[in-house]
Write a protein that binds this DNA or RNA. Structure first.
Lengths: 347, 347
DNA sequence: TTTTAGCACTCTACTCTTCAGAGTGCTAAG
DNA sequence: CTTAGCACTCTGAAGAGTAGAGTGCTAAAA
């Protein structure tokens, strides 16, 4: 399907409709555009053009005698080829960066702060999704003997993330045995992604050098750690301030979706081909309950070349230029946190 | 203020009003009670008693020609002296315990599962609050040298919780120096609650045995770790199913509160004098936005004799007997997870 | 050929009224 | 002390009327 080309006037009027509707949340009338946007055209002329835009599918009328509101298709061309993504002011950039000062650069804390900062600066719902641990590269494993029945396995990931796992053991192992185990493990596996380690570790032959029982237990438990993607959400209740969500029927399905973390993670995670910042408008997300929402998302990079996602969910009637700038800039800020100079222990 | 004593009939009718209202969410009429509850009394007689109950403050009328609904005071006597807390069926107990089978006994995962289980079995909002780390006893500190610029500090808490902290250092420290630092630290501090360690560590004299600079840095960073209480919430959108929350004005303030995790933690955390299971009805919680809600909460015990809280938040019109049983039982199940036989490394 | 003024038409949203139904309080009889 | 009966009150739904906003169309003006 080829999108019909709009002439200059049609573009101007569509842009005016989008911007006016985004401010007021009410259908935009021809008179309003004639009055508020200096086009040198009368309301009647604008009416004609609006009828054209409606035929082309860019705007629609809630009812016969109402103004126009943009369709998803209308928003799509606006986002793709009309809006000018404004650079954030220094003040706002500072504000975003300041949001992180209190944090200890602890991974979880950064994620939490991110969702909060995104929601507070955008006034919509902020979301941060951790990278999939499974794809992440193991830098080193450390084993510590806790007591006669437990070992603590510490996984230092190349990304800077640290994960623990308590491993129950039956035999009492000496400190030497424990450190030998970690040495063997690291010789085999340090530098590989967890996923691959998991696959390889199933081959028993790998451990023929060592009495297989305790080693197998340790490996098994170590690798069975929670590899879930974590999702951090903040500012969901900002939706209550949006007039078009002033109705329970409108807002309930949305909150039901936001409570299913895995679904939110899928929603935010871009197809691997696409990097950078994207906008999903309305039903483009393909998510039931999110038809009235748009998503602005962006990738960040952790050190092990892992990618996580952050984003903002708001009403379709969203301040796109601003939100795109915020999400993009915040993703850059996070990526910096994970840059070698700051967090390197993967020399 | 002494609560007036109710006679048997008044008690029966109050109980009937509470139970009927809890089922229907609509004001209860005298006729309905006469018909549905076998009291051998006519509607007129019940009306008289209802008027008495209203004078005493146990029930109220939304408007002159409507039935009665219980007041907070009415719910209070119901919860305190009328309802019979039913024992959960074996099936339900099983269901709760099964909710944990997939989990690795990892602390965070148990908390997440708990909020989910509470919400799914109660059909209200389930909440789990971790114990305050600050009060928690440190079992042992381990230091691992990561690279020339970073040490990893691992805090093994007596409760079974494990926390990490990456500590940046300036001098390159040998493995022996690192292990000597942890030895000194443990000699001084193992077995003490974090809070006390924090206070003592401020006295420089404590470290006179060791070149104070690197040690001080390590101690400072180690103790500055995120000691926040974590709050896990699930099933908040169950409120949408409650007819009395069918209005944005009713549900918005509630969701605003649920988004402020610290506030939820305060709400759930009982005054230290009270253990066991408690019910907070309506404005008893003293929390703005929660006037239409009740809270059922219970403590669980971690191994270091630390106490966390779990609970359920639902409408004042809540199935109290059932929810109290659920919360109580779930708290017992969690406490078992932390029992020495399963998780001991604090010999 | 394009733009605009004018006008009839349509639809919404608000207000007002009416009316049935539900439930009470009161009174007087059982 | 209990109950039947009845007048009274209040809600909520349904219907009618109205003002206002906005459109589409037509015919004149540029």
């Amino acid at each position: 399907m080829t999108t019909p080309v709009l002439d200059a006037r049609q573009r101007n009027i569509l842009e005016a409709i989008v911007e006016c509707y985004n401010q007021t949340a009410e259908p935009v009338s021809s008179r309003r555009i004639a009055r508020d946007y200096e086009m040198g055209l009368s309301a009647a002329t604008i009416r004609n053009t609006m009828a054209d835009l409606e035929d082309l599918g860019y705007v629609t009328q809630p009812h016969t005698s109402a103004g126009r509101i943009p369709t998803e298709q209308g928003y799509r061309v606006y986002v793709d080829s009309m809006m000018t993504t404004e650079e954030l002011s220094l003040r706002e950039k500072q504000r975003i960066q300041d949001g992180y000062v209190s944090s200890n650069r602890d991974f979880e804390e950064i994620m939490e702060q991110t969702s909060k900062i995104l929601s507070e600066t955008s006034h919509y719902t902020g979301i941060a999704v951790s990278p999939e641990l499974d794809e992440s590269v193991l830098h080193r494993l450390e084993l510590i003997s806790i007591d006669s029945k437990h070992i603590l396995a510490i996984l230092l990931m190349a990304s800077g993330v640290v994960k623990n796992q308590v491993v129950p053991i039956t035999d009492n192992l000496s400190d030497e045995e424990v450190s030998r185990m970690s040495r063997i493990f690291n010789e085999k596996f340090a530098g590989l992604p967890l996923k691959q380690i998991r696959q390889t570790a199933q081959l028993k032959a790998v451990f023929d050098q060592y009495p297989s029982e305790p080693m197998a237990v340790v490996v098994h438990h170590t690798l069975s750690l929670d590899s879930e993607i974590h999702v951090y959400i903040d500012g969901a209740s900002n939706f209550f301030s949006q007039p078009e969500f002033g109705d329970i029927q409108k807002i309930e399905p949305l909150f039901r979706v936001l409570e299913r973390k895995e679904q939110v993670a899928d929603l935010l995670s871009a197809p691997p081909s696409e990097f950078g910042t994207q906008v999903l408008i309305g039903s483009e997300s393909g998510c039931e309950g999110m038809e009235m929402c748009s998503i602005v998302r962006s990738n960040y990079r952790t050190q092990g070349n892992q990618f996580g996602t952050i984003g903002v969910i708001g009403p379709t009637r969203m301040a796109y230029p601003r939100v795109v700038s915020i999400v993009k800039f915040t993703a850059e800020v996070i990526s910096q946190f994970f840059e070698p100079s700051l967090m390197n222990f993967g020399g």
